[in-house]
Design a protein around this nucleic acid. Sequence first.
DNA 1: TGTACATCAGTGAACGCGCGTTCACTGATGTAC
DNA 2: TGTACATCAGTGAACGCGCGTTCACTGATGTAC
Lengths: 204, 204
Amino acid sequence: MTKRGYHHGNLRQALVEASLALIAEKSPQGFTLSEAAKAADVTPAAVYRHFAGRDDLLAEVARQGYEIFAALMEYAYDDGKPSALAAFEATGRAYLAFARKYPGHYMAMFESGLSPQAYPDLAQASAKARSVLERAAAHLSEHMPPDRRPPASMFSAHIWAMSHGVVELFMRGNGAKSPFPAEDLLEAGIGIYLRGLGLLRPDQ
Amino acid sequence: MTKRGYHHGNLRQALVEASLALIAEKSPQGFTLSEAAKAADVTPAAVYRHFAGRDDLLAEVARQGYEIFAALMEYAYDDGKPSALAAFEATGRAYLAFARKYPGHYMAMFESGLSPQAYPDLAQASAKARSVLERAAAHLSEHMPPDRRPPASMFSAHIWAMSHGVVELFMRGNGAKSPFPAEDLLEAGIGIYLRGLGLLRPDQ
DNA sequence: TGTACATCAGTGAACGCGCGTTCACTGATGTAC
DNA sequence: TGTACATCAGTGAACGCGCGTTCACTGATGTAC
């Protein structure tokens, strides 16, 4: 049991968790402060003891999302073990696993439309997460044929874009029914891409 | 001049165009029927002469988007001329050009969260657009080394996912500042991917 | 241990607002004779 | 050409609703003596 505060006990975190469920169900724009309060068994006014308002609550949800995201990526990457390539592929799989397991966080992070600049803590968490991805990309790029090695930030962006696109188009109802499981689709896509970079033998 | 009807003249289309501007500015979920009516210089109630309600109006915006999208893709693909590969690359560029030039349509199509099943016209337009992409992919896949040729629907999904991801992450403010222009980023990404499929020589 | 007081998390009522939607209506446009 | 009538696109008022936010308050918890 977590320690209980005055009345509710950890209301701040309870609100975050109520919001997560609502965001996953109705999208970040569909979620309302009042509903989150109700889900936490509390008056809407109580929310203002812990957050400056609706957007501030949403920002905190996104911030926690980036923290989890960064930790998962870090863990999956595992300092490039057993090999830069294998670690990189594990990171890609972890990306999709995160989107599937933490849909509320994912949507708050990437589909909420709130600007991170307005929330310093959010901007910092987001930068931290991104740095994990870029480190993995930079490490892997050392193993590329140097003549046509693209900037690490570019090929990290490619992988991120494809991963995000698979999540948005084929994991949610949006756009299209997936003809394949999203995981297989992304793994195959990344494989082809890495072969194009000379990181995989043509017959791998 | 377009022909004018009873009072306003083509109010139906005026509402669609007002909605486009609002959607591009505030996202599909931020757009409201009342604002669209006001932008078209008309009472909210007038909207109900032409649409069943807010969602119906949004669906019509998306439908028109798919029509334009399909036409642009068709034009860019140009029946696979001058070569299947060149035509395919032109189609990729056209995708991004569409997203940039018709942000309201793009957002209504891919970020609105409305289910196409509920709107038969929308579902049909969406299927038509998708078929153009799949035809291009199928045609190109005939030129692949047949031993490891992936299903056309899969590699079409890869390209689409990367394109969509680039739009969402690097063309909008969402997620990240682009280190490169979105067009260059996507073109390079598709190039690497196609090389991975054996469609481009390693030194191309 | 017991009492008096300070703190402050959450309450409940209230606010102004804009939303989507309905309804009886009006008056400009089109049509029949 | 002129008149009487039918049509129907758009009006304006009204509705109930849930939103975000504010405010003075209350009462459970923690603390000092």
